[in-house]
Design a protein around this nucleic acid. Structure first.
Lengths: 402, 402
DNA sequence: GCAGTTTGTTGCGTTGCAGCACAAACAGGA
DNA sequence: TCCTGTTTGTGCTGCAACGCAACAAACTGC
């Protein structure tokens, strides 16, 4: 039976919606006056002021101290408002194959602390890994301000449904575990938690980093040993029916010896081919990148094949998903800037009709991307249904895993 | 600059949202009592009754006349409510290559009138085609009740952006025309209009037909000479960045002589191969279907290749879009029931990991699918921001093309 | 016939926004 | 320097819409 209650509203919910909209608008605009806010929200100035006074009282919003850069317009200048960075904090953690990465963001979604701890994810039972992640996060990252902590997000290279149950995580050796429940139990009571696939989290983080939800469709690829992917539509993660949408790594590419994109452009094949031409044993990604940069013919040939395969898969994705932007992340994506022209060439050749090709960009700070994205998902939730702080009752606080 | 006004609310908007939610709930549930509605909407019974009395006054909702099937439960039985089919009407028209199809649906989204008129779309200027479509719709379909007409939707085999500007329509010979504007001008003032790609409209219609917006992801294929496609997410059409999402017809399939799905499973190749084996000249789709049904070996071979290619493309789509359901429409899809086992077999083989395959269904009534979908899009809009009838001002009535 | 249950309606109270008025703060011109 | 025009922030009043409680009505089952 369908539930339409989310569509209906009551006076309480009206206020809740407006408070949330106000927070999102300030987050997106960085600095706004009460009058600006009223215009953007379509509210009266008096209502805007009322909402702001409430948020200031809660310590989430403050007036900007120095008002030096007066834009010198006619009329009384407004008092600019901004989010208080310390007003809330959100923790994002990634359990990877070799590291646990933990970081903290504030209300402005800027990173205030990062820790990267070596961790052998290949031989770690679920409970142990989660306990370790929680310990790193709570003891190190959020030591002083657990009372302000509004969420704990966990990103892992695992295929899971939208309720946070892991179907399979080949890299970590997990299978059929309820990661959401395990995480919930490992945390102190009262901290909302969330678990997500690492590529999906990465995708959200990339789209979210630049000031809140932006319109449009973004396809994100994370290229390491495997190739993960995620799709973000208007700032919301698109999971598909089984939480597997965007899994571009398993898309077919036409080649003699490798059928899937993951095998064709992943780290393994790259190093295998590089070992064949580099001669000496220590063939690393850094070495390959350097050789390509120096235009060593054998390395360039490897890179051009990489570009061709990548372009082919991207064109398939454009036809099905039609993204505005494609973001490349992961260490192997470092190859892209040197062959971006080749990628564009192949894509244009394949796109028979002259349709606008999406913008392709390289993501920096790829190491912390997934953890940052997990934190951003909590931040996004906090700003969209900000309520319990104000209303006092617990409605909504217990948001499942989604 | 982003606009957050859609997120904020005011008493006016509260009522508007609740009225819309009520209409949607009644539409989805067919027959509800005031108390049922209150429960589904999370409102008080008094508010529910208030909203209903307003809707009854507007002629959109009525009490069910015969209350014969008493479910005999404890307590006073509720008075069931239903939508008034004649409360509003929506017109959907498809301009095809050979026909113009026009139909009318009422508030219950059931078709009340259909006309199919021969029309040579290959040599028709835009303005002429649109004028013809409008004439058929207004004179024939909506003759008596134009005052109740709440929308005119036009579906065409054209690639267009979300503002209704056609980039190119190869089958109709159009290029760079503002179809939305032309349609708006061809209509009498006051009738909201909407234009949409035919495959997209078909997709919406399929997902919408069974009682309002349903959750989940549906991928729709329309297989004729070409292969069109559309994606519906939670009842909303997903257009992608340039309005090209779901264009599965251009996905690559690995084969010697045809590179794209459209060529591999479209009508042309099918008939070409069938001509080669059937001997005599009049090779039709109906003949092929009959031969396959009779297990004629040459025809079965053609059908099995068709199944293999289709399965390959569907698996690619599953990896990127991950739909819950796949719907096959168009005349060529009639081949599917005879080879569904082959399709399933190939898909399972390709899906190395044992992930749940989506349900695949055949769509009936494919001829009127696009026109019906266009009408459904208007119906959907009417039910989601039903306002001007009640509020009196024109806010929202002028919904652009989207 | 009576207890128990569910429904539809009415009146009252509360919440939250809009509209209006007004003081404050600034730019520009006489 | 003063005055006009403009924009901002803040009270105050009114209104729209919902929740709550109470009650009559309608039905089942014992």
């Amino acid at each position: 039976m369908s539930d339409f209650s989310s569509l209906s509203s009551s006076p309480r919910r009206v206020r809740q919606a407006n408070v949330a909209a106000a927070l999102q608008a300030i987050f997106a605009g960085r600095q706004l006056s009460r009058a600006d806010l009223a215009r953007q929200l379509g509210l009266n100035r008096s209502s805007s002021g009322n909402i702001i006074s409430e948020l200031v009282g809660n310590g989430l919003v403050r007036e900007v101290a120095e008002d030096a850069p007066k834009p010198t317009r006619a009329g009384r200048p407004g008092i600019l408002l901004e989010l208080v960075p310390e007003g809330a904090c959100f923790i994002g953690v990634e359990i990877g194959v070799e590291h646990i990465t933990a970081l903290r963001i504030g209300l402005t979604a800027e990173v205030s602390d990062v820790r990267v701890v070596p961790f052998d994810g290949r031989h770690a039972p679920v409970a142990e890994a989660v306990d370790r992640a929680v310990a790193i996060a709570l003891d190190g990252i959020a030591s002083g301000e657990i009372e302000r902590c509004e969420g704990f997000g966990l990103a892992t290279p695992a295929q899971m449904d939208r309720r946070g149950r892991v179907r399979i995580a080949p890299l970590l050796g997990w299978r059929d575990v309820d990661l959401a429940a395990i995480t919930r139990e490992a945390l102190p009571a009262g901290i909302p938690s969330l678990v997500e696939n690492d590529a999906n989290a990465f995708a959200i983080g990339e789209a979210y980093g630049s000031r809140g939800r932006q319109r449009g469709v973004t396809l994100v690829l994370v290229i390491e040993s495997g190739v993960g992917g995620g799709i973000v539509i208007d700032g919301q993660l698109f999971r598909g029916g089984n939480g597997l949408a965007g899994e571009i790594g398993h898309v077919h590419v036409p080649d003699a010896d490798c059928a899937e994109l993951e095998e064709a452009i992943g780290l393994e094949l790259l190093l295998k081919r590089y070992r064949g031409v580099a001669g000496t044993g220590d063939a690393t990604l850094a070495g390959l990148l350097a050789d390509v940069r120096d235009r060593a013919p054998a390395a360039v040939a490897i890179a051009e094949d990489w570009a061709r395969h990548l372009a082919f898969a991207l064109v398939q994705a454009c036809r099905l998903v039609d993204p505005d932007r494609i973001v490349l992340g992961g260490s192997v994506a470092g190859l892209y800037p040197m062959v971006s022209a080749r990628v564009a060439f192949h894509m244009e050749t394949l796109q028979a009709d002259s349709f606008p090709l999406p913008e392709i960009v390289l993501h920096e700070a790829a190491e912390t991307g997934a953890a940052y994205g997990a934190a951003c998902m909590l931040h996004q939730r906090f700003l969209s249904l900000e309520n319990d702080l104000l209303a006092g009752d617990a409605m909504g606080k217990d948001w499942g895993n989604l």
